[in-house]
């Protein structure tokens, strides 16, 4: 296994109290595999990714438990300078908003080249040549001329390609893409997702794709982890989950997608709101919104049930859910 996250727990101490952002997350990614982490805002999907990358703001964030095994080593036990060598070289991250993630006062060539200067000790000239090569690789037209341009001179799609180039620069074994196409238009999103999938195949990388878009997930993922209130409520191979979800939250999300045969009818809507992370409901965090909730759901936190091959669900009544 390339990456294994075990029972990860993260909290944020704020003036108003402790927000429990991640409450025992387990997931694993293999080389060449795409794991989609699906969740709404505040579900803890990005915080988990930041903890893996080691870019969590601490304080106010605090990792209170768990381990992150990357190629067998527990990243949480590494010293900061060791961690820095892993970051960028062995795992890299692609952010949602390329414009605010790139440095506006450095040319894209300098930013891409910096990776090689810092991690590989290359000369500036060689690094520049590498930068051009990378920009070609992610199909930025006229890379040789544009390497001197600044981020604001590129369109949104092109900027996201530069982010991808930067993440790929040192050929990491794992890429974490946090909503990489959310800020893009659909036609550009299709270009970027295709590029990402192609490069992943070529380099045989593990990919964690963080998103809230059920369509993107269906398009590219091998497996899905659905997060709710800091926990993974269901994890399964992609085909299984769309066919028969084993958790009522997943079912609710799938049912609320407008379908053709429902035109003119009311859409299914999950009632209520995602919980406040400072006051997560006792028992199953989803119980106040769940149509299947019973007494036990209000008192007992559901364990992760094995519901099939590499498939888990955190619902007391998963069999019922699975059978519709």
């Amino acid at each position: 296994m390339l990456l294994e996250v075990r029972d990860l727990q993260v909290e944020f101490r704020t003036r108003d109290g402790v927000a429990k952002a991640v409450n025992g997350v387990d997931y694993a990614v293999d080389a060449g595999e795409t794991l989609a982490v699906l969740g709404e805002s505040g579900s803890g999907k990005s915080v988990t990714a930041q903890a893996i990358m080691g870019i969590l703001d601490m304080p106010p964030g605090r990792i209170t438990g768990g381990e992150i095994l990357f190629q067998g080593r527990d990243l949480l036990k590494l010293k900061e300078d060791e961690r820095r060598r892993v970051r960028g070289a062995e795992m890299a991250m692609i952010f949602q908003d390329a414009l605010s993630s790139l440095n506006p006062v450095l040319s894209v060539g300098d930013q891409l080249g910096e990776m090689f200067v810092v991690h590989r000790g290359m000369s500036k000239k060689d690094a520049r040549a590498k930068a051009v090569e990378l920009m070609d690789r992610v199909r930025i037209p006229a890379a040789r001329e544009r390497v001197k341009d600044y981020p604001h001179q590129f369109s949104g799609g092109m900027r996201q390609r530069i982010m991808i180039a930067m993440a790929l620069a040192l050929e990491p074994a794992l890429i974490i893409a946090d909503e990489p196409t959310t800020a893009l238009d659909v036609t550009v999103q299709a270009q970027v997702m295709e590029l990402l999938a192609e490069l992943q195949r070529e380099y045989h990388m593990g990919l964690i794709l963080i998103t809230h878009d059920l369509g993107v997930v269906a398009d590219v993922a091998d497996r899905i982890a659905v997060m709710y209130a800091g926990r993974i409520v269901e994890q399964a191979p992609v085909h299984d989950i769309y066919k028969a979800p084993a958790h009522p939250y997943t079912r609710g999300l799938l049912d609320s997608i407008p379908r053709l045969d429902q035109k003119g009818q009311e859409l299914y809507a999950i009632k209520g709101l995602p919980p406040n992370l400072m006051h997560i409901p006792p028992g199953c965090a989803f119980n106040p919104r769940c149509p299947m909730a019973r007494d036990v759901c209000r008192t007992d936190v559901p364990p992760l049930y094995e519901v099939g091959d590499r498939r888990t669900s955190a619902c007391h009544f998963w069999t019922e859910c699975l059978n519709g």
Binding site: A190, E194, V216, A218, H239
Partner: peptide, 24 residues
């Protein structure tokens, strides 16, 4: 535009034709 929209159905992945536009 329609072909670029991801369809929330993994079964559709293989047998759909995608028109990828070039450029911006």
């Amino acid at each position: 535009l329609l072909s670029a929209v991801p369809v929330p159905d993994p079964e559709a992945r293989e047998h759909r034709e995608r028109i990828i536009l070039t450029g911006d």
